[in-house]
């Protein structure tokens, strides 16, 4: 627990250190919160808008965090502990992903607060469950993307594509034929489905299923390729992937 709190603190300091990031995220969150209160015609649409607004901001944060995740572990010297067998890599990356999700709380919760101010009926257990789903979804995305981005020679080049895939496809933002079905291959699609109230009964179990499936699949596919590249980075002194 103490280690998780430390990671949260470290990530918060990291994020705050990048002034352009803070300026951008603050403006973005404020704008989206005001815009959704302006556009929503009722509590239901407000919830979907809040979900989309939160994901638009948070997916960017998650991907930036995932991109620098492993490098930062080298920077803080925790990766050596992994290689010496003191901390399992899966656990370390999992804790990082969870702390990343906590750090983005303002960007995640503010759109819902805006929706609740405009439509007080938004306040309720369904919204709380939706927020919890978003936390889990973003932590899972952070974890999966950390493993995936490590495989690229230039992770920064892959980040915009990951972002667009998660947002354009994962939220069925562009309504092409069967967009909803494609979105439901990803956890984000089920979050939106739950927010919209469509297929509400299956949305939660399907969300949990997609999160688990993707996380396991990515871990199984890439865990063996991750460790050698980390060790290589340590040995050749680059301390980065």
């Amino acid at each position: 627990m103490r280690f998780t709190l430390l990671l949260i603190r470290v990530q918060w300091i990291d994020r705050r250190a990048t002034s352009s990031f803070i300026i951008g995220i603050t403006l973005q969150t404020a704008l989206l919160t005001l815009a959704l209160a302006h556009r929503a015609t009722g509590a239901g649409p407000a919830l979907v808008l809040a979900c989309r607004a939160a994901l638009l901001t948070c997916v960017t944060i998650v991907l930036l965090s995932a991109m620098s995740s492993v490098q930062n572990e080298f920077r803080y010297g925790t990766m050596e502990n992994v290689l010496l067998g003191r901390v399992p890599l899966a656990r370390l990356l999992g804790l990082r992903a969870a702390s990343c999700a906590v750090v983005m709380s303002p960007a995640l919760c503010l759109p819902f607060a805006g929706a609740a101010v405009a439509f007080p009926s938004v306040l309720g257990p369904r919204t709380l469950l939706l927020i919890a789903m978003l936390y889990l979804c973003l932590a899972a995305i952070c974890y999966q993307c950390t493993l995936l981005l490590c495989q690229f020679a230039r992770p920064s080049a892959a980040v915009p594509w990951f972002r667009l895939a998660l947002l354009l496809v994962g939220m069925s933002v562009v309504p092409f034929p069967r967009a909803r079905q494609v979105a439901e291959l990803l956890p984000t699609g089920w979050v939106i489905a739950y927010a919209a109230g469509t297929r509400a009964v299956v949305a939660l179990p399907m969300f949990l299923a997609t999160v688990s499936l993707w996380t396991c699949a990515v871990w199984l596919a890439f865990r063996k390729r991750l460790r050698p590249s980390i060790e290589r980075s340590l040995v050749d002194g680059r301390a980065a992937l």
């Binding site: 959704l36 354009l168 933002v173």
Partner: peptide
């Protein structure tokens, strides 16, 4: 496309 559609197609 994303910026235009993120709120416009939500409903």
């Amino acid at each position: 496309l994303l910026l235009f559609a993120v709120l416009a197609t939500a409903d």
